[in-house]
Design a protein around this nucleic acid. Structure first.
Lengths: 127, 127
DNA sequence: AGAACGTGAAACCAAATGGTTTCATAATAA
DNA sequence: TTATTATGAAACCATTTGGTTTCACGTTCT
C-alpha cells in the first residue's frame, strides 16, 4: 500500500490555503459529511467540496460513501513528507553552527562556488 | 532585534512553490546574489527575483545589499511556524497509524509518542 | 410514486500566480 | 566620462485558483 497514492496535488500546495488547513483540523476531530462541514464556512457547499477534493488528491483526507452522504476524515500520512522536508532545515536553528558558518563566510571576500547544483528536486518529490 | 517580520506572504504559501523550495535549499548553503542564483534555473532572472521577493516577504530569506548586488540567504526562523503546525498532527500518526507508518518508512525514533505533543526542542514561536 | 436531501459536475467569473520583455537606475570598470 | 554589470519596477500575458450558480443523479422519507 505504500505507493498506492498518486498525489495529483502535492501536500505543499494542499496546505497552502487557510481554508484547507482549517478543514484538516476539523476533520481530525471526527469524520463528517460535506454539508455538515460546509456549515462551518462562509462559502458555498460546492466550494468546500472542491477544497475537499484537493485535499483528497493530496491524500490528506479520505472519502467514504455512506448512504447519500460522503464522509471525509483526516488522513495524516502525507504530512510526513512535510516533516521530512522540515527536518532538513532544523539544523539551521538547532545547530548554531549554521550561524557560525555564515559569520565566517561574511568575512570571506568572495565565495567561490556557485557551481554547486544544490537543486535536485525541482519537480515532484513523490515518495 | 527579533526580526521586524510582518509577513505579507505566509510561510505556507511561500513554500507551496517548488522553485521557491529549491531556492531555500540553495540559499541554505550560502549567501548568493540574484544573478548567480538564477543561473541555476530555467527561467529569467526577473522571475527568480520575484520568487525571492515572496520568500523575503514571508521572512524566509534576507536581502543584503553589497555594492551593486543584492545577496540573499536563508532565514529559517519562520519555518518554526510550520513545525508547530505539524506538531499538532503528529498525534494522529503516533496513535492509530503509527504501526503502519513505521512499517512503511522508519524515520526517526524521535518523539516518545503516545504521550503529549509537546516538543521541547522548540519552545517559542516568537523570535 | 413523488418529494426532499446530499452530493458532484459543469459552466462561468474575477483575481492571483508565474512567467515574460522592456526600461530605469545605481555601482563598478575602462 | 562612458560603458558595463546587477538589479528592481512596470506593463503585459496565459494559466491556475477560489469562488459562484445551475443542474442532474442517487438515496431516503412519506
Amino acid at each position: 500500500m505504500a505507493g498506492s497514492a498518486a498525489p495529483k496535488h502535492d501536500v505543499f500546495q494542499a496546505i497552502a490555503d487557510p481554508t484547507r488547513r482549517s478543514l484538516l483540523k476539523l476533520l481530525g476531530e471526527e469524520e463528517l459529511p460535506v454539508t455538515a462541514i460546509s456549515s462551518h464556512y462562509p462559502m458555498t457547499r460546492t466550494a468546500v467540496s472542491k477544497h475537499l477534493r484537493i485535499l483528497a488528491e493530496a491524500g490528506l483526507v479520505s472519502e467514504r460513501r455512506v448512504g447519500r452522504e460522503t464522509r471525509y476524515r483526516l488522513e495524516p500520512e502525507p504530512l510526513q513528507e512535510l516533516k521530512k522536508w522540515l527536518a532538513y532545515y532544523e539544523r539551521f536553528w538547532n545547530n548554531k553552527l549554521a550561524a557560525l558558518k555564515r559569520f565566517v563566510e561574511d568575512d570571506e571576500p568572495e565565495a567561490p562556488a556557485d557551481r554547486t547544483i544544490v537543486d535536485t528536486s525541482m519537480g515532484k518529490t513523490d515518495l
